[in-house]
Nucleic acid binder design. Structure first.
Lengths: 155, 155
DNA sequence: ATTAATAGTTGTAAAGTGCAAATAACAATA
DNA sequence: TATTGTTATTTGCACTTTACAACTATTAAT
């Protein structure tokens, strides 16, 4: 299990770097990695509230508030006061935001294809299946989800 | 491949959070995640130079310089002028640094065991093997390693 | 009506970041 | 040897990110 920990740490670190470099490469440095994660998360959920997204990203709400403002300023996201509760802002991607996100995705997919190209198709299948298993396992374990106010991971 | 990208992004994000929370939980908030990565990397290599570590972590050398100073101040790492080239500082973990790192490792291993506990032993084997494959593939692809001055990932 | 809870925003201060420029040591060469 | 170029690390500076505390606006509970 020790070796798994090491293996994971390396992998996560490297993929983080890869993701970061994709971000500033493709859209003329206008989007940081944190911001790209925000965009992804907004797309993943339908039109989530600020809290919701901040929570999923393990980010303080106040920090998120500023980031959101930044993204809105860049015209990548928009907010709408929720009719059923006027305290909450529902977030959504603008067309430009959608495009930027797709651009980042393309870059990443491209790099991933480079990475996967050294695998046999059997290995590739195994790896893909494993990723699914891993994410499920993380979800089941309850790690990395909010629990009674204390943020994110396993507190 | 799209789905792989999404799967990976989620996974990397969550594991990053997990790692971060392990860092500030176990050793009384004295070590940030970036710093824990520095410690890991110093242990992984024998007694690397500053450049070496900064490079592997995709961190600007100047930023790294400050972080290293901080860690030295906390008594977690030490530096030694390399006899063969007095420009370079060789980094090493102090006893305390080693202990702190081991503590973080234990926390992470613990969480990982929780996560893996929902897998069958066959699945677990598959996943472990896949992680190895992935890291190899990343290394082979040349992504995430320095290339002519431009840092880290695939530039 | 009043009090409590919740979603979001700012003030402020600390930490992290990278670029440019400086220092120090080494390397190459005239 | 003196000079010029290169490399490893450090500092000055400006900018961003971050979180805690305190605030506003809205809803819920009594």
């Amino acid at each position: 299990m020790e070796s798994v920990r090491e293996e994971l740490q390396l992998f996560v670190r490297r993929l983080g770097l890869l993701n970061a470099s994709c971000c500033d490469e493709c859209c003329g440095q206008q989007v940081s990695m944190a911001q790209s994660h925000i965009l992804s998360e907004i797309r993943r959920r339908g039109s989530p509230s600020m809290q919701r997204v901040a929570e999923e990203l393990g980010m303080d709400v106040t920090t998120f508030s500023r980031q959101a403002k930044g993204l809105e300023g860049k015209g990548l996201i928009m907010r709408q006061v929720a009719p059923e509760d006027r305290r909450v802002s529902r977030l959504g991607l603008t067309d430009e935001g959608t495009q930027v996100l797709e651009q980042i995705d393309r870059y990443m997919v491209d790099k991933l294809e480079q990475i996967f190209s050294s695998l046999t198709s059997f290995e590739r299948e195994t790896v893909v299946k494993s990723l699914g298993l891993l994410n499920e396992a993380v979800a089941k374990s309850g790690c990395c989800t909010q629990r009674d106010k204390t943020i994110a991971c396993c507190k």
